[in-house]
C-alpha cells in the first residue's frame, strides 16, 4: 500500500488560512457570503470527520453487511437531498431512492463480478460513496429538468393527450432532453479530464505517493464506472418519476400546469 500520510489537525488548520482570504474578500466586496462560508467550513469539518470515524469503524469490522447498510444509508440521504432540488416533480423521493440503489448495486456489483476490485470494505465504501454522490447529482439534475420541461410544455403535453395519446406517449419528447441534461455534465468533464482539471482520485493517489500510471489507471476505471452509474440513475429516476405528473386517466396533474400560467 501507499506510504501513510502524516496529516494532523494542525495542517488542516493551516489550510483555513485560505478560507480567511475568502472571508476577507467577501467582506471587502460586500458579497455577504461570510455566513455561508462559515457554515460550509463548519459543516464540511463535522460531516467529513464523522464520516471518517464511520468508515474507520466499517473497515475495522470488515463486515460486508455493514458496507451494504452504509451505502444504502448514503442512498437514502442522497435521495432526500436530491428531492428538494426536484421540487416540481410530484413524487420524487421513491424514484430517486430506487435510482441510487440500482446505480450503486449495478456498478459495484459489476466491478466486483469482473474482478476489477475485490469485495472488501476498503474498496466498496469509497467507491460506493462516489457512485451514490455522482448518481445523486445526475438524477437530481435530470428530474429538476423534467419538472421544468413539463411545466414549460404543458400546452403541448395536453394537446398531445387530447389526440388520444397515453401519458407516456405525451411526455416522451421531453424525457430525452431531461435524460441528456443529467448525463451531459459528466460526459463533458470526462472529455476534458487531465487537460483542464485533474480528477480528485488521481490527485489523492499522487499526493499519497502512488506511481503516476497506477493513479491514472484507477482514475480511468472510476471515470468509466461513473459514466455507467449516472446513466443508470438518470434513466431510472426519470422513468419512475414521469408517471407522477399524470393521473391514472391520462390527465396532466394541475401542479405541473399551474406554475406555468
Amino acid at each position: 500500500m501507499t506510504p501513510a500520510l502524516d496529516i494532523g489537525f494542525a495542517e488542516v488548520g493551516a489550510a483555513l488560512g485560505l478560507v480567511a482570504v475568502a472571508v476577507l474578500v467577501s467582506l471587502w466586496q460586500r458579497m455577504r457570503l461570510e455566513g455561508d462560508i462559515a457554515v460550509a467550513v463548519a459543516r464540511s469539518f463535522v460531516q467529513l470527520t464523522a464520516v471518517g470515524f464511520v468508515i474507520q469503524l466499517v473497515f475495522e469490522q470488515d463486515d460486508l453487511l455493514l458496507v451494504v447498510a452504509l451505502i444504502a444509508g448514503m442512498a437514502v440521504f442522497g435521495a432526500f437531498t436530491a428531492r428538494r432540488r426536484a421540487a416540481s416533480v410530484p413524487v420524487a423521493f421513491a424514484p430517486l431512492l430506487v435510482a441510487l440503489l440500482l446505480a450503486g448495486a449495478a456498478t459495484l456489483g459489476l466491478l466486483v463480478a469482473l474482478g476489477v476490485f475485490s469485495a472488501e470494505p476498503r474498496y466498496l465504501v469509497p467507491l460506493g460513496g462516489m457512485v451514490v454522490g455522482n448518481s445523486m447529482t445526475a438524477a437530481a439534475v435530470a428530474l429538476s429538468r423534467l419538472g421544468d420541461e413539463v411545466t414549460g410544455s404543458w400546452r403541448e403535453i395536453e394537446a398531445t393527450l387530447a389526440l388520444g395519446a397515453t401519458a407516456g406517449q405525451a411526455i416522451r419528447p421531453i424525457l430525452r432532453r431531461s435524460l441528456r441534461s443529467g448525463v451531459i455534465p459528466l460526459i463533458d468533464s470526462t472529455k476534458t479530464t487531465g487537460v483542464i482539471f485533474f480528477p480528485g482520485i488521481m490527485v489523492g493517489l499522487l499526493v499519497a505517493g502512488a506511481a503516476p500510471l497506477d493513479a491514472v489507471r484507477l482514475q480511468l476505471i472510476i471515470l468509466y464506472m461513473l459514466l455507467g452509474s449516472v446513466t443508470i440513475s438518470s434513466v431510472t429516476a426519470v422513468m419512475l418519476a414521469q408517471r407522477s405528473f399524470f393521473t391514472p386517466a391520462h390527465q396532466l396533474r394541475e401542479v405541473a400546469a399551474r406554475v406555468a400560467t
Binding site: 400546452r155 403541448e156 395536453e158 394537446a159 393527450l161 387530447a162 389526440l163 388520444g164 395519446a165 391520462h250
Partner: peptide
C-alpha cells in the same frame, strides 16, 4: 383514450409537435 379520439379537442393556443 377512445373518448378523446371520438370527442376531439382543439385547444385555445396552437401547440404543434
Amino acid at each position: 383514450l377512445a373518448l378523446r379520439r371520438e370527442v376531439a379537442l382543439v385547444p385555445q393556443l396552437p401547440a404543434l409537435l
